[in-house]
Amino acid sequence: MAQDATTAANAAGPGMPQLDFATFPNQIFWLVIALVAIYLILSRIALPRIAAVLAERQGTLTKDLVAAEELKQRAVEAEAAYNKALADARAEASKIADETRAAIQADLDRAIARADDEISAKAVESETRITEIRAGALRSIEEVARDVVGDIVSAVAPGQKVDDSTLAAAVAARVKG
């Protein structure tokens, strides 16, 4: 039957082999086998495998992203800690500097005060000595003046006796005046 149809179709010469219905059962039979085979290959092996791979990749990506987020968080924390340590160190340093400055200032003040005391003591001493020297000088002037006046009197009026106390009183009055 099929054989007859095929022969008839072949005898009909060039036409459309697509319309040679004698080959239809054959094509459909093999097509169904091929489709079932492909379906089984895909649904049994390929699709579960690819789905698993894609899911695993998605999981890996998510995990890596979470890990990256965590690491980023830690980096931020570390930076904050670093900044805090830096600020603490800076505050400590400025405190130490202040203390040192204050201590130095105190030392300095004390030294200056001592120096001032010494200076004023020295000044007082010098004052005393100057006064003494001045007094000594005045006395010497009086003595010299008395001697000179005695000599002048004995030279101007020889034989004239001048009393020492009178002479001293006159010179003192003169020097004072």
């Binding site: 080959t23 054959n26 093999w30 086998i33 091929a34 085979a37």
Partner: peptide, 22 residues
């Protein structure tokens, strides 16, 4: 010359190639 429903043909061959490539 005959193409019965079960005869392996060039259709069969290229369908098989299709399965193999997939």
């Amino acid at each position: 010359d005959t193409v019965a429903w079960y005869t392996p043909t060039n259709v069969t061959f290229w369908l098989g190639m299709s399965i193999l490539s997939i």
